[in-house]
Amino acid sequence: MSVLDVTRPDVVPPPVERRLLRRLWRHPSGRWGLLLGAALLLFAALGAVWTPYAPDVPDYANALKGPSLAHPFGTDATGRDMFSRVMNGAHRSIGAAMLVLAAVFAIGLVLGTLAGLAGGLTDTVVMRVADVAMALPGLVLAFAVLGLLGPGFVNLLVALIVADWAWYARLSRSLSLDARQRPHVIAAQMAGIPRWRIVLGHILPGVALQVGIVATLALGSMIGAISGFSFLGLGVQPPAAEWGALLAESRLFFALAPWLLLAPAWMIFLSVLAANLVGNALRDVASPGEA
């Protein structure tokens, strides 16, 4: 029985990188996404505290100047430095998108998992409310909430959360229903592990990872949505800078100063790109069996 002796140790598999961030870094698109995302976050953080010029103070003598060394992105109709405004607006655009996604992720994860695991009345109530939220197209629902609350940045965020949470709740519910049936969950039940520990240790991490990947992939469209609402004047109110709002302002002077549109448009494009690169890489490295 030398060959099959059960106590004969197996060959040791080669070490594998297990930390998610490192694996993301090794993924080609993940690395570029992380670098780009880090650069954008740094840019946004810096823009919140310091800009080369005051972003909100008009300087009528220098209105609608083209790009130059002093004003790399030019100046707008009231002479405000466009670079400073793009920089100052970054934390609103990126921060708001991340805030909304963090909120819908958390609300959806908690409500969806609760509905899936508790079942019964809780499930019925949560899911029927979610059905109502999902029955209305997201933008229409957001418009309706903004109509009730009035335009404004905080109200915009609330509107987007109301419009989006139900999708994440549905996803979390079906993932947790599936996870509840997994053999490792049944094994833990049989071992006498209390319910709350099974939920926190076995079910939630797996569901959160899957839902988190979906949320990361949605970051791009969320930045677009926030910019879109600000473009329509329903989000950030003047004179505060935000990329969508900057696009809306610049649009009026398109014939005179077309470069004004380019800067915020590029920033939106780059942040959508970074989010999608990271989201795609995350989906690749986190999928089980891929190791």
């Binding site: 002796d5 059960v6 106590t7 004969r8 140790p9 197996d10 060959v11 040791v12 598999p13 070490p15 594998v16 297990r18 089980p288 069996g289 891929e290 190791a291």
Partner: peptide, 22 residues
């Protein structure tokens, strides 16, 4: 793990790194 002949594997390994039999 040694009793089932897996004394040589890294206890930190994730299931996806092992074969189905392991």
């Amino acid at each position: 793990l040694a009793r089932v002949g897996l004394g040589g594997i890294d206890p930190e390994a994730r299931p996806s790194e092992l074969s189905v039999g392991q």
